[in-house]
Design a protein around this nucleic acid. Sequence first.
DNA 1: ATAATATATGGGAACGTTCCCATGAATTGA
DNA 2: TCAATTCATGGGAACGTTCCCATATATTAT
Lengths: 339, 339
Amino acid sequence: MADIWDVAKLAGVSKSTVSRVITGGDHVKPETKRLVEQAMSELDYTPSYFAQAIRSGKTRTIAIVYPDSSNIFYNELIAAVEDVALESGYMVLTCNTRRSKQREREFIGELIRRNVDGVIFCTYFCDPEQLEYLLALSAKLPMVFMDHLFDGRDDVSMVISEDIQSNRHATAYLASRGCRRIGYLWLHDVTVTRYRFSGYRLGLEDCALPYDDRLVHLARNEASTESNTHIRLGYEGMKQLMSLDDPPDGLMTSTDILAIGAIQYLQEIHVPIPGRVRIVGYDDIEMSRLIKPTLTTISQPVHDLGHEAARILLRKITKGNAYNRCKILDPAFKIREST
Amino acid sequence: MADIWDVAKLAGVSKSTVSRVITGGDHVKPETKRLVEQAMSELDYTPSYFAQAIRSGKTRTIAIVYPDSSNIFYNELIAAVEDVALESGYMVLTCNTRRSKQREREFIGELIRRNVDGVIFCTYFCDPEQLEYLLALSAKLPMVFMDHLFDGRDDVSMVISEDIQSNRHATAYLASRGCRRIGYLWLHDVTVTRYRFSGYRLGLEDCALPYDDRLVHLARNEASTESNTHIRLGYEGMKQLMSLDDPPDGLMTSTDILAIGAIQYLQEIHVPIPGRVRIVGYDDIEMSRLIKPTLTTISQPVHDLGHEAARILLRKITKGNAYNRCKILDPAFKIREST
DNA sequence: ATAATATATGGGAACGTTCCCATGAATTGA
DNA sequence: TCAATTCATGGGAACGTTCCCATATATTAT
């Protein structure tokens, strides 16, 4: 491969001048610039990524850390992030933690070692220790958090969809369709579902429905490779709820996949949906439009979330890490057959 | 950040010795090694990724170039590749071309610039020019091809699932269930589906069924962001086939998503499945188990494919690019309700 | 005991850039 | 017209490693 000296020699200038052209050259005569560019294309020269990185400290690489590649939501999110990043000449390193705390840590270490310019972090675990660690990290390395709100902090950047009010309204909607015993199916130890659950409780209050914790099933959520784990959790959660003396006549869930598992169980025992039980999902994954009955769900503005997160991150990188923004985007409520 | 000099000073040795410890140290006294390691952990030192890369030429990074993140198959494939790669200390750069030839080229350029150690390439386009280019590239940069067989070449590495015989048998299976007019729904310009189609034709021959090109619908497949594009293509393809005087009573498809689109159309016009039309998909995506009727399909051994490709690539990297292997893995035929 | 080899370590060049400083030419302002 | 400024360019240090060669010591073979 040609190096900067070859280009300099061919163009009849010094390597410093070539470097200036590469980096967007101030103080270089147009005629000289043309000569250098011609030499570069003639030699099919591209500057060595590492030599640039080691000297300038910039890698033009960002990373996104996310919990689960079997959840389409994250793949769409990544695609949206990539759109913005590639346009600005950044590559995206995707770090699938598979819901493993250990892998999360390992990735962070590797990203620091590789000097990424910034990180979009989809917080999965919500234990205080981990959050504290991330917060400290964010002071040094430009980060944008998703799926978790650090309350009252204006020194971090966050992009998240509005979960509390949207779940509140969806719960009230179920009540308005006649449901009196609305259950909730959610996942243990997952940051993002806490907001959704609190929206559910507010919705119950709004409609003067009592909160009954027997109607709430918290699925244990082990790190796993299997993509259909969550479907099974939904299936089994619903099974348990239906075994109550007073089974629910409505169900809120913290993700579509749980809802789909729940629907599978109900169909197996021939409980009509929405006749006997009405169900609301969360995410609006493609599948929710394809199953029968189609699933009423809360649809995150996934492309906007990704674009916004990437844009904020890039601005943090170029304008300095002190730049911070918090963006809360409204999801859409998609009413379909399941309610 | 501490550098190698700090470690050397603290351990009371030269930077050369520290370097030897880092790189897996030959010729270093155990006692010295211990001292150095202690100094490293005391200073929380990790060697600079770039300085290592620039000098050694190795990046401990591989890339996977793939066409489409909305297709779960590739996400599972990537997860399998990551398993093997991370275990050996490699990171995986995922390059989603979104079925754009231009982006494919751009990614290749960027990967070369970034000196990745190797590439797993899911060939999407099958025009000879592009293939020739990739073949030439493979001579310089360790590559493993997926989704395309370069016939009779023993100087390239390939990992692919056996598509011809599996589709042949599936077609014969449809015939054995009584189908006499078996159609085929496939995608234009996609490498991998050509093998599947030729399997279909062989299957027809085996059963002495005539080949009727009116029963074959070739969907035009434009680069697109939308994840439900392929469903629509399946829907419209089926619509056209059903408008024939002699509509098909069986259907082979080149991917599950097309099959699901086809099923949607048939349900809309109240054609019973498998009563009037029997349908076979390809891929065994999660959705195929969730729709009604559940979809009979050919299931690629996606984890094995990913593991195998990654292992071969890593071996090419360490043993030298002359090492090549071609691995053809057998898919499983999953019979479900749709047939 | 002596030569030949293996082991353990250090010193300096090299990797391919960017960044800082120096220098000379061209431009500006009074 | 002459200093002050801006522009255009070159030269060399620096980034933090690895790699090669030199050297000193320890081990083995004869």
